[in-house]
Design a binder for these strands. Structure first.
Lengths: 329, 329
DNA sequence: TTGTATGCGTTATCAT
DNA sequence: ATGATAACGCATACAA
């Protein structure tokens, strides 16, 4: 007995149009077919409301036109904007996107990779936190912000340059005693280079600097105490602060203002990321801007091998500075 | 000649283990298989690094364990947070998610729906702006924020209640002359009911109210002029303003402060959405909070038919009020 | 309980 | 140029 209530197949179309299966396939895929046949097939397709089954196609051709993106979450504006751009790039290439949010969970990351391997995705873009993530040989993989060995290209902002730029900017703006505030000490990824870049910048511009690096999970309170300890007679010892992210900067600015310290008059603050979700409406702070769209484009380009071969596995894209009300000028 | 460099299949595993194809299938799917066989199969799977081909599975079983989400973009925090929650709900059900960003483009929305139909997704969740979107009969569809007819369930915040709540809150806080500011007049969707709810609240609490509703694409400047026109001798005629979104509220607050009007002392402002991306760090404004997580859960529940049948096609979830510094108290 | 055989919808390789 | 037919990898009904 014939299956009822099921979508029509090429076979049904062929029967309806009175032609052979292969002919229908050719029409569907735009291969040359003579007029009387072509027309009959197209009529039958319309009449039956036929749709190709991409699953059967992918099954046959081993190409799924699907790329997966692994990100921790979409809460963080950096992640959501990055996801947005990657999605648009894929869309332009008529490619589907599997979204996988991992919540920084290494096991979940690995689980997802296995699932994606089963799903025969054409490629994976991963912003992951599992230092020993096993990525399958057969699937093109591009990493963001973490170098995963010589065979896997890694795309990141030039975090070192960003740190250096922050120090230089603070120096240019008249600071002499600066601080670097950072969370998430344990990870060995590209954003860690912000510290080295900042140090380098401080040294070359002869700035006095201190650093406070929080362990994983430590609350922001420690920043508050650190800042309070460096205030004497209502004046802050620091006149410039570089924060590892805009989020930290946002917290620090609040704390400083609560301590009656004026930003930017007494202390200038620079963050990192530079996301502007409300257009130009919401500059949280002056910031080092990550080129999110370019990161997305580069990942896709690498995945589709649109770049000349033999490139270095680490691509650091240049950052820029944006004024946002927490520095002078 | 045998294909080289291709992933091993069940057949390869069967040969390696010296058992029949069906036995391998059973082991893979967790069906009962006696010990000596089971062990041999598992060994062979490990040895060959075999992975099931989900595409072949889906092709065979007509279930893809994939749901698609249509949203305009991920710039807007409401959309990105909604996407986040939907993704997590799907993850809990071991279901993949296709992300489709449409940029409010009706043609693109329709194009995506067709593509998803081809892809045999198990369901579609759509936050769409195409009033005449054609959704296929065969695929479960849940709409967010827009009613699409009797056969398609729609999930939304209780926008009417939200508007009413805003009016009542302003009344409670001592306002007497209030305004409603809104963009995007043309659409016929659930968020439109914020206006009616607000009006209703104003009438029942005897507030004087005015409304300014911008046409699609009109710049926010018009809000600025409207506000400026209602200022005399440095005092605002309005003492309370309800904005259709937090984004509009954010703009309005800035404008008011530029006009030397104090918020919340002179004018109290309430927005809509209540997204807090930086945790509790960033209250942009007092706001009516959409229950984003509950919206996500409800959509998934409807898709998986986890609710008792016969429910109404429109589900309005209750909203709440949150204080954010732009109202008194 | 295990093995065998068939078919899912499509593409591709053949003859015609 | 078109039509018949054989894979693709897996699940399953059925036979052993």
């Amino acid at each position: 007995m014939k299956k009822v209530n099921s979508s029509p197949t090429m076979k049904d179309v062929a029967r309806e149009a009175g032609v052979a299966l292969g002919t229908v396939s050719k029409v569907v895929n735009g291969l040359p077919v003579r007029e009387p046949y072509k027309h009959k097939v197209e009529d039958a397709i319309r009449k039956l409301d036929y749709h190709v089954n991409s699953y059967a196609q992918g099954f046959k051709s081993n190409r799924t036109d699907t790329v997966a993106l692994l990100v921790p979450n979409l809460w963080d504006p950096f992640f959501s904007i990055l996801t947005h751009h990657i999605n648009r790039e894929l869309q332009a290439r008529r490619c589907r996107m599997f979204l996988c949010t991992t919540d920084f969970n290494p096991d979940l990351e690995q689980e997802y990779v296995t699932m994606l391997q089963n799903n025969k995705v054409d490629g994976i873009i991963g912003l992951t936190y599992n230092p020993q993530l096993e990525v399958p040989e057969g699937i093109p993989f591009v990493s963001i912000d973490r170098s995963m060995g010589p065979h896997i290209p890694c795309v990141a902002s030039d975090n070192f340059q960003g740190g250096q730029m922050a120090a230089e900017k603070l120096a240019d703006l008249g600071c002499t005693n600066v601080a670097f505030l950072r969370t998430g000490s344990s990870l060995n990824n590209e954003p860690n280079k912000r510290k080295a870049g900042f140090e380098n910048g401080c040294l070359s511009r002869k700035l006095n600097y201190e650093m406070l690096i929080l362990d994983d999970g430590e609350p922001y309170d420690k920043f508050d105490r650190f800042l309070a300890e460096h205030i004497e007679c209502g004046r802050s010892y620091f006149d410039g602060i570089f924060c590892v992210t805009d989020k930290v900067a946002y917290h620090v600015i609040k704390t400083l203002r609560n301590l009656q310290i004026k930003v930017p008059e007494d202390v200038q603050v620079i963050g990192f990321d530079g996301i502007r979700q409300l257009g130009d409406l919401d500059p949280v702070c002056s910031s080092i801007v990550q080129p999110v769209e370019e990161i997305a484009q580069t990942c896709i380009g690498l995945l589709f091998r649109e770049f000349p071969p033999g490139r270095l596995p680490l691509i650091c894209l240049p950052v820029t500075y944006t004024y946002g009300g927490t520095t002078r000028e």
